[in-house]
Amino acid sequence: MDKVTSADGTAIAYDRLGDGPAVVLVCGGSVDRLSNAPLAALLAEKYTVYNYDRRGRGDSGDAEVYEMEREFEDLDAIFAVAGGSAHLYGTSSGAVLALLATAAGRPVNRLALWEPPFILEGTRERPPANTADIYRDFVAKGRRDQAAEYFMAEVVGLPPEFVEMAKASPWWPAQEAIAHTLAYDATVMGDYSVPTETVAAVAVQTQVLTGGASDEWMRLGNEAVVKSLSDGSHRTLPGQQHNVDAAVLAPALKEFFA
């Protein structure tokens, strides 16, 4: 692990693996860089992989007030370490962050997105517009457990029995520890609709990947993203759901980045 300093002085931790063209990995909500570690190890067979902790998670620092632009600057710092530009991969809400950062002009060579969770009107209920405030309120009251539970049950839509099992699991304290970052991802997602004009501003070759066993609303939202891209493609990985198997995903990314 190493650290780089972002523009606002926040320390951003990252792992560097492998040798070859640079690839930067962006994690999604309620996780840190360890969630991408299996993928990083497989991509490192062909690439130099930079797997970093987004601010507020793992070994990275944080700022008192969250602004999405600071996350763009965190990526700038990682790109600088990587040699000035890199391929970029993001998963879930991290895919949306990667998409928005690329649209804002970050030095991305190729962009790969795993299931950005945009919700088209009428396909499923969208989270409330004040979701970020709901998370912040829970955390301010010292109820990180409720913030994590709200994310799983109300935003992701996991069944009650799974949520109860999660709360009794050994990894639940880690969920509570980064519960404050749930508001960050809610800010990134906005109202969960596809920001078509922003997506159209992405000027690099982009591939959106979807699991063949994922819900239809996810597939429809992902296809809508591709329609708004100037140079986009869609690929389905058979049998995969949102929690994708790195051994299945890595070959697809290697092919695209090559």
Score class of each variant (00 low, 15 high):
Val139Arg: 10
Ala177Ser: 13
Ile178Tyr: 04
Leu120Tyr: 00
Leu120Ser: 02
Ala179His: 12
Gln240Glu: 12
Ile134Lys: 08
Asp245Gln: 13
Val96Gln: 01
His87Asp: 09
Ala140Arg: 15
Arg144His: 15
Glu164Ile: 02
Gly84Pro: 09
Ser230Met: 07
Gly90Trp: 01
Thr206Pro: 02
Asp76Gly: 00
Gly94Trp: 11
Thr131His: 07
Thr123Gln: 06
Asn36Arg: 15
Ser93Glu: 07
Ala179Gly: 12
Gly211His: 08
Arg33His: 11
Glu176Val: 14
Thr187Met: 11
Ala104Val: 04
Leu100Met: 14
Thr131Ala: 15
Arg144Leu: 15
Val202Phe: 05
Leu182Met: 09
Phe257Gln: 05
Gln205Ile: 00
Tyr150His: 14
Val204Phe: 09
Ala250Ile: 03
Tyr89Asp: 08
Tyr184Asn: 15
Asp32His: 07
Asp191Thr: 09
Thr91Leu: 05
Val226Phe: 14
Thr187Ser: 15
Cys27Ser: 14
Ala203Glu: 13
Gly29Cys: 11
Asp231Tyr: 05
Pro116Arg: 04
Pro159Leu: 13
Tyr150Asn: 04
Pro116Ile: 06
Ala112Ser: 14
Gly142Cys: 10
Ala246Lys: 02
Glu255Val: 03
Arg143Trp: 06
Pro127Lys: 03
Pro38Phe: 09
Ala213Cys: 07
Ala86Lys: 08
Val31Leu: 07
Asn130Ala: 11
Phe162Ile: 10
Met68Asp: 10
Asp32Glu: 12
Ser233Trp: 03
Val26Phe: 08
Arg219Trp: 08
Leu209Tyr: 12
Gly29Tyr: 01
Leu237Glu: 03
Phe162Asn: 05
Val4Ala: 12
Arg219Pro: 00
Thr48Phe: 07
Arg16Ala: 12
Trp172Gln: 10
Leu42Asn: 05
Thr48Arg: 09
Ser85Gly: 11
Gln240Thr: 00
Leu75Asp: 04
Asn130Tyr: 00
Asp185Gly: 03
Ala177Val: 01
Asp8Thr: 06
Val202Arg: 07
Val26Cys: 14
Ala258Tyr: 00
Val225Asn: 10
